[in-house]
Nucleic acid binder design. Structure first.
Lengths: 216, 216
DNA sequence: CGCGTGCTTGAAGGGGCTCAACTCCCGTGG
DNA sequence: CCACGGGAGTTGAGCCCCTTCAAGCACGCG
């Protein structure tokens, strides 16, 4: 997935390090606390240090679409315009680093490898969004849930046991479903012996191979 | 939408001009001709000169998800890895410009404003993808069709009369619907007097205000 | 212990899908 | 000029998956 290692180039995980002399510029947040809101000025770019974050948009009539879940190491808040297009909230106790857009621009102007890192990260976000589109456009409810579980497992570097950081409503709004359908999908996966649900936010992937086959 | 004009910066429409001394490096394509395929090496970045292009992915069982429609001026083929993640095809007689990824990298390394232009374009693609997600996740069939019509109108700079460059199957696979549902949505919009369909690929937006209200 | 919030389960309804027939173009050739 | 054929689009009927509405359950917290 990652490009071959190049000497002296930024590891994308540490893009901010070069621009942030004091790595203590952290924001600490509690459950459901807003980081920024849709329409607000996009002055900063963020990186999750610990915890997890959701971004979403809301339609006039209240329908909500969760755009992305962000975990430790993930960057968010790349907005090309002046305003944020989504709202970002912590899903649990979370800390994030911030950097002024201007500071990042300067870094990019000074160092070509930083530009490459930024491009890489944006492209990664684009890929995620494209996968999300495929999921919503052409997959059944169960396939969507399986896709999300595998995605969480991969991105939190868990293998068989995963801690689901979000509630059913967040899952539903990410997958374009209702909480009831998500719940039914999970129990049906459990009935088929593909997963186990020791607690409501803890999932055991009992047959990962079979689950992966379901989403190609 | 666009950032304020900066002296000496690239107009994103003309990003390639600086990197392409001979602007004749064009590829001419006919209907349904493939530009690149999923999994192939991503050596080039492309820009539509005239005509229109679709990008898509196909699932094992044949389900297809159209990722994007590209019109004159649009760039495509931004892949961060070595391989294309989608297939790109011309939807009609089309010509595209190409530039080696390496040449673009060089340009970006040499000129900071090119980096900004590239970032801008990638971010634009990301925004489109996010809007697509919202469409697929939380909108009804009719709302999706209206959204597509308005998007085409805007991006082809048409006001009331639009030429739909794609067939019903392409629309359906972009919107996560079936051709029958797309067709029914169009006739129901016609019945309500919101649009007219003089021919199958020609749509008149009779009440644009009302249509825009439908998608917020 | 009781209450509340979030999750699960059930029953009924609906929006979009499936399958199938039909229509409309449009190009081709007699 | 019309007959023919074929692909694309439309329309119809029935079904199914997901939603809606409603009730029941479980866990956590005062």
């Amino acid at each position: 997935m990652l490009s071959p290692i190049r000497a002296k180039s930024f590891d994308t995980d540490h893009l901010f390090d070069a621009a942030l002399p004091t790595p203590g510029a952290c924001l600490r947040l509690t459950r459901d606390e807003e980081i920024f809101g849709e329409g607000e000025d996009a002055d900063y770019i963020y990186q999750v240090v610990s915890g997890s974050v959701r971004t979403y948009r809301i339609l006039r009539d209240g329908r909500r679409q969760v755009d992305a879940f962000l975990f430790a190491g993930d960057y968010f808040g790349w907005e090309m315009g002046e305003a944020h297009r989504v709202t970002a909230e912590a899903m649990c106790d979370t800390s994030v680093r911030m950097i002024r857009r201007g500071a990042l621009s300067d870094l990019v102007a000074r160092r070509g490898d930083a530009a490459r890192a930024v491009f890489h990260l944006t492209a990664e976000g684009l890929q995620r969004s494209q996968d999300h589109v495929l999921m919503l456009g052409r997959r059944s409810a169960i396939e969507r849930v399986v896709g999300l579980l595998l995605d969480i497992a991969q991105r939190t570097r868990a293998d068989a046991e995963i801690d689901v950081p979000m509630g059913r409503q967040d899952m539903a709004d990410y997958l374009g479903l209702t909480i009831e359908t998500v719940s039914r999908a999970l129990t049906s996966l459990q009935d088929e012996g593909l997963i186990a649900l020791p607690t409501v936010r803890h999932v055991v992937l009992k047959d990962r191979r079979a689950l992966e086959r379901m989403v190609l």
